[in-house]
Structure formats: structure tokens, C-alpha cells
């Protein structure tokens, strides 16, 4: 075996080892990214799910939030009071279940800042596209992540407005 082949094999082995380590022992930042990605996956509906499948997805989606999770989106929609607690999130999602058609939710440009061992902040853009529609709605969100029982959960969601909005008269 000549030298270049040995080098190639060594590089492949090292790359595979790094890939495996990244997959099986992810950093806290990657765990948070996976949690946020999982939340987006649970918020995505093909439109062909039955009610049981929708219920299961809603249950799973609510499970991404802490018991006392706080959602504030008043900067972008008329929902002044926001949502407080996992149970109210579950109730709102369940109430909206009959109206859920096909919906594709994706997260983009996630940046994670680890505050301490059990707390982190994440900034991201979430986009949503209804089934059969070309129009995509996008919004920036700031998340406060909390680690509970080894799992990263969303403690707070706040819609971020990256610009000054004029006052509509």
C-alpha cells in the first residue's frame, strides 16, 4: 500500500470517527438545535393525518415546552396576553386542530448561546407555508431554553421585531 492510499484511509477513518462522535455525543448547542428542529417537525402537518395522528403531534409539540412556558407574540400579532404554561399551549393547539390543514414549518439561522448548564438562549427565524400556497410567512423568534431531566425544553418564546414599525393611524 503506497503512502497516498494510507493517508486517504487515515483521513477517512478520522472523518468517520468525528462524524460518529458528533452524532452520538452531540454538544449542548447541537442538542438545542435538534430540540428546535424537532419542534418544527412536530408543527408540520401533511394535511393527510387523521385526528388521532394530529392529537399525537400536538401532544408531542406541547411536550417541547416547560410547565410554565411563556409565549409572547404581541409585537407581531394582536395577542396581547400571550400564552402561559404548557397546558394553555396544548389547549390552544387542540382547539385549533380542526382548522389545521397542510402546514410546513421550518427553522432557519438558529444561533445558540449557552448561559449556564441548564439555561440557554436561541435566536432563529421560523417560516410557515400552508399547503398549496406559494406564499411563505417568516418571523424571528428568541427562545429561552431550559434543561429539565437531561432534555432541553422551551421556557419562553418571544417574537422579535428587528426594525422600527410605524404607528398606523
Amino acid at each position: 500500500m503506497n503512502r497516498s492510499i494510507r493517508l486517504l484511509v487515515a483521513a477517512t477513518v478520522v472523518a468517520a470517527a468525528v462524524g460518529l462522535a458528533w452524532h452520538f455525543w452531540p454538544s449542548e448547542e447541537n442538542r438545542i438545535r435538534k430540540a428546535i428542529g424537532g419542534m418544527a417537525a412536530d408543527a408540520t402537518f401533511s394535511g393527510k393525518e387523521g385526528n388521532f395522528a394530529k392529537m399525537a403531534k400536538i401532544e408531542s409539540l406541547a411536550g417541547h415546552f416547560t410547565e410554565d412556558a411563556d409565549i409572547r407574540v404581541d409585537k407581531v400579532v394582536d395577542l396581547d396576553s400571550g400564552l402561559h404554561g404548557r397546558e394553555s399551549i396544548r389547549q390552544v393547539l387542540t382547539a385549533g386542530m380542526p382548522f389545521i390543514g397542510a402546514l410546513k414549518v421550518q427553522v432557519h439561522d438558529v444561533t445558540v448561546e449557552i448561559v449556564d448548564e441548564t439555561h440557554a438562549k436561541a435566536l432563529m427565524v421560523a417560516s410557515a407555508q400552508g399547503g398549496g400556497q406559494k406564499d411563505i410567512a417568516a418571523q424571528e423568534f428568541q427562545l429561552k431554553m431550559v434543561k429539565e431531566k437531561g432534555k432541553w425544553l422551551v421556557g419562553a418564546v418571544e417574537a422579535v421585531l428587528g426594525y422600527r414599525k410605524p404607528v398606523i393611524q
Partner: peptide, 15 residues
């Protein structure tokens, strides 16, 4: 300049 059509970033440049 006024009249320019521009790309404006959000949290990143994907959207």
C-alpha cells in the same frame, strides 16, 4: 439610495 430594491437580513441570511 432611494428606489433601490434590497435584501434585508432577519436573524441570518437564509430568509
Amino acid at each position: 439610495a432611494r428606489g433601490d430594491v434590497v435584501g434585508v437580513r432577519m436573524a441570518g441570511e437564509s430568509v
